[in-house]
């Protein structure tokens, strides 16, 4: 049962990543692409967590935490750049 749930969840997350890539390539404006990139960060964290469940190891949670922090900071930086034309004023 757990194997089936794990594979179903992985397939759904990979399909979500493909939809994000579509929006990243097509998205008409800059905030659309930024939103797609932010969602890709979250979905890749989900994929790392699922990989940790699949390999039965806890090694990768630190990398998931790191990706979460860097994704948030990069989103905020690009938003500030688009809002103000500068990142640190």
């Amino acid at each position: 049962m757990l194997d089936f749930a794990l594979w179903t969840s992985m397939a759904l997350v990979v399909a979500a990543l493909l939809l994000n890539v579509y929006r990243l390539a097509v998205g008409p404006d800059m905030p659309d692409r930024l939103l797609a990139l932010d969602t890709m960060y979250v979905n890749s964290i989900a994929l790392i967590v699922l990989m940790g469940l699949w390999l039965n190891t806890k090694t990768y949670f630190e990398s998931a935490l790191l990706i979460a922090m860097l994704g948030f900071i990069s989103t905020v930086a690009v938003c500030k750049y688009l809002l103000r034309g500068d990142i640190i004023e």
Binding site: M1, L2, F4, A5, L6, T8, S9, M10, A11, L12, V13, A15, A16, L17, L19, N20, Y22, R23, D29, P31, D32, L35, A36, T39, V42, N43, A46, L50, L53
Partner: peptide
């Protein structure tokens, strides 16, 4: 069973969120 349900629900919610982002009309909906 609880862990399997949480896994499938999480995958479904992540997929629905990305589907909404790919499908809706303007940025404020997306």
């Amino acid at each position: 069973g609880l862990i399997a349900f949480l896994l499938v629900a999480g995958g479904a919610f992540a997929f629905i969120g990305s589907l909404g982002m790919a499908h809706l009309q303007d940025f404020y909906m997306r």
